[in-house]
Amino acid sequence: MGRPAKFGEDRILDAALAVTAEGGPAAATIAAIAERLGAPSGSLYHRFGSRDLLLATLWTRCVRRFQDGFVAALDAGDAEAAALHTPRWCRGHPAEAAVLLLHRRRDLAAAWPAELAAPLEALNARAADALSAFARAAAPTATAWSSPRWTSPTAPSAATCSTAAPAAGGGRADRHGLPRRPGPVGPERLLLVFTLA
């Protein structure tokens, strides 16, 4: 029986997360990540094969962790929790939020690794399916979920229900307003409006 790896995938990704969140993608070299981890560079190449694969795996892990709470709120029919998930998650996970909000995936990996195409597609499909199911349940007569503008939240963004969240992929923060209507707007309406923005 072989001994467990001293530098497992999650430890390597945690070190990559810290370096990337602090210094951006350009700072996230294999040497810098290995130094943060206290591991030889060869351990990182043995585990991931390339810097692109390591950082793409990190980005995918961040997306999955963000989406877990968002999808759970949608599956529970909790519009308020889904609408507030982005700012809450960003406050609770500042390093992962920095990676997702400040950098596009192509900033991390110049060439997206083929072995991560299917997992990323599955993540996007999971979020889109949860959003569609929620929209159908919240507004069964609406046709919003079949609109060509319908998008799924890959990462924290203005499209994921927050009125002041930075746009996915970095860049400027957008504000999306609701049309003026008398009376309060419930969380279900907020969720539908911001996912269609």
Rank of each mutant, 00 (worst) to 15 (best):
T60Q: 11
A73Q: 13
L101I: 08
T20S: 12
T86C: 10
F70N: 06
I30V: 15
H46M: 13
L55N: 03
A39Q: 05
L74M: 13
R172C: 00
S162Y: 07
K6F: 03
R91A: 13
R36C: 01
T60I: 02
S50M: 08
C161M: 07
G69V: 12
V19D: 01
P182T: 09
Q67L: 14
F70A: 07
I12T: 05
L196T: 04
I33A: 00
L191H: 03
A165G: 09
S157R: 11
R104C: 13
H103P: 06
A39I: 03
P113A: 08
L101W: 06
E121N: 10
G8M: 00
A135L: 14
D78W: 09
S147N: 14
A168T: 04
R65V: 13
R136A: 15
R172T: 05
R149A: 10
A158P: 02
P148I: 00
P187I: 00
R175A: 06
G177D: 10
F70E: 01
R149F: 10
D75F: 02
L123M: 11
M1G: 14
G186R: 12
A73L: 09
L191V: 04
L131C: 07
P4Q: 03
R172S: 07
G186S: 09
G177I: 05
R3W: 12
A118K: 15
G69A: 15
A5Q: 12
A114K: 13
C62S: 14
L116F: 12
L131T: 08
N124A: 05
V99C: 02
